Simulated assay, not measured.
Amino acid sequence: MFYALGDIHGQMAQLDRALALIDADGGGDADLYFVGDLVDRGPDSRGVIQTIIDGQNAGKPWHCILGNHDLMFHQFVTSAKVLHPEILSGKTWLHHRLGGVRTLASYMGATELDHPGWISWDHANEHGLDPASDSLLAAFADAAKDAVPASHLDWIAALPLFIKAPHDHIFVHAGIRPNVATDDQAQSDLIWIREGWLDYGGELDAMYVHGHTALDFPQHHGNRINIDGGAGYGRPLVPTLFDGAGWFTLDDNGRTPLHP
């Protein structure tokens, strides 16, 4: 038996609730898989990462995959990168819809982010980075380097792109390119893919469990399971589990089967 959690997106209170539900189900010592996107949009990305690190350091069998938001956070702090070609709208990681500023606030404090020039830059750059603001961007990246613990950056950098789990399950953040061997998948597909994956109804070499594309509730699609229930948009973080025979979701009333 093992448990899994979808995209958390900085929602520390939801993570606490989900872990309590897993404990109540008897899974406190069971394997738990996180499918990435731990940060952005929610108020406490720092707390989410620290909670998972602390659990692993305490010996809990917790396994985590790299999500695209985790990668964007790491790349901003280490290289001030905010533009990503996979974001077709041209919005930067710091745009309010992507939520990077809220992640920085959890490390730096909201007061430091109240700089008038920064607020103006954040709201004005809806479709990409204005080169005239490079110096301001660099200043905030430098401030982030001072605020974000190296242990968090090192931990994110070491996260795998997929994890093979028992009973022919594979955990991945976004999905895969169908008909390409798992070990040959491109990073950009594993953490960003939608087109060619979400509409694929054919057989796969394993049951893929993923997040990335927010739903109203986890859904079993037959050949894949999407467990991103939209916590990044204010919906509950729903724990899921596989008992060796079938999939379930967890809530205050216990288990509910998750059927295709």
Rank of each mutant, 00 (worst) to 15 (best):
E126P: 15
Y107P: 02
I52D: 03
L136T: 11
R41Y: 10
D7M: 09
A231C: 12
A24R: 15
L159M: 01
H220F: 12
G42C: 13
L159K: 04
A58I: 07
H115T: 09
F171C: 12
A138D: 13
A13G: 05
L190Q: 05
D252C: 00
Y107F: 04
L15F: 10
R255M: 05
T103E: 08
D130I: 03
I65F: 14
V35W: 11
D252R: 03
H152P: 02
A105D: 00
W155D: 13
G47L: 08
G128P: 10
A245C: 10
I52G: 00
A20R: 14
W197I: 07
A165H: 12
A141S: 13
T182C: 03
F248W: 03
L94G: 00
H173V: 00
V48W: 07
R17G: 05
L71S: 02
P116T: 00
D146M: 02
N57W: 10
T111D: 10
A158M: 05
W197A: 01
G232R: 11
H84D: 05
R41G: 04
Q50C: 14
G36C: 11
D122G: 15
E112N: 06
R102S: 06
V82H: 02
G100Y: 10
N125G: 06
E126G: 08
K81L: 08
D184T: 08
A138N: 10
D29I: 08
D122L: 10
D134M: 05
A165S: 02
T256R: 14
I87G: 02
F217C: 03
S135N: 15
D54G: 03
S188Y: 13
T51W: 09
G230I: 12
R235G: 11
I193Y: 14
M207V: 14
S120Q: 09
G128Q: 05
G222D: 04
L104Y: 04
L137N: 13
Y33V: 03
A139R: 12
G59W: 11
A124Y: 08
L215V: 06
L104V: 07
V101Q: 15
V48C: 02
D16R: 03
Q185T: 04
Y233G: 09
H69G: 03
Q219G: 01
Y107G: 01
D29A: 05
A105E: 09
G99T: 09
H169G: 08
P166W: 13
G230V: 13
G201D: 08
Y208M: 06
H212L: 08
A143S: 15
L15D: 15
A150D: 02
H123Q: 14
D16K: 11
S135V: 13
L15Q: 14
Y233N: 14
